[in-house]
Amino acid sequence: MDVSRMNPIVAPPLRRSGFFADIVAGLRSLLQGMGITFRYFSHPSTVVTQQYPENRATLKMFDRYRMRLSLPHDENGFHKCTACRICEQACPNGSINVVSRKGAVTGKTELDRYIWRMDSCTFCNACVMACPFSCLKMNGDFECSVFDKSLLVFNLTRYAGPTSTVLMKVENPEERRKLWEPRDVYSGPLPLRGTELPGGGKTLGKPEEPARSET
């Protein structure tokens, strides 16, 4: 490999010309710089600041924005998670804990609690990618700050029981009900220091989201 194929272009040297020429050129360069800053000063339309809490109504994250892991529940309130634990294994830092159980009626393994620790999550999206049933999603709810780290442990499930596919095969709603058992939004692991959840465990403006568990 010869150097000529690199097409190197060499930096121009900074030259000095003479006492007065340098002063004149220097002053000119300074004035040019001032011209740039003044252009921004005199054009308030160039301001890029966003006034954050005020613009919450219009502030929208991109669809792919990765912040909060969620286990979307369909219109019937059922999720598709089979508790296969692939996400748990895909997680590089052990932020996911899938608690499964033997179904009381079906006798098969089904999801009991889906525990996600946001405090150790790196939002790498590996779980979402790995999920063979596409039942996980990262959403753009970025307002997650809390005063207590223990509030960052979430239980993503609203019920323990089989997947939506299994549940929807059962036609009778009464029979269906027997197959699942609602999970209290607070039914996750116990809080580290007995912290109460502020605002009933709901985060800002996302009532349909599974509420955080009281860990």
């Binding site: 690199m6 272009i9 060499v10 930096a11 121009p12 900074l14």
Partner: peptide, 19 residues
Amino acid sequence: DVPVGARGDCWDRYWVRIE
């Protein structure tokens, strides 16, 4: 092209990055 410096001073490092 690959920008390279002539002397290796701060100006060259600056210029190389800008280029």
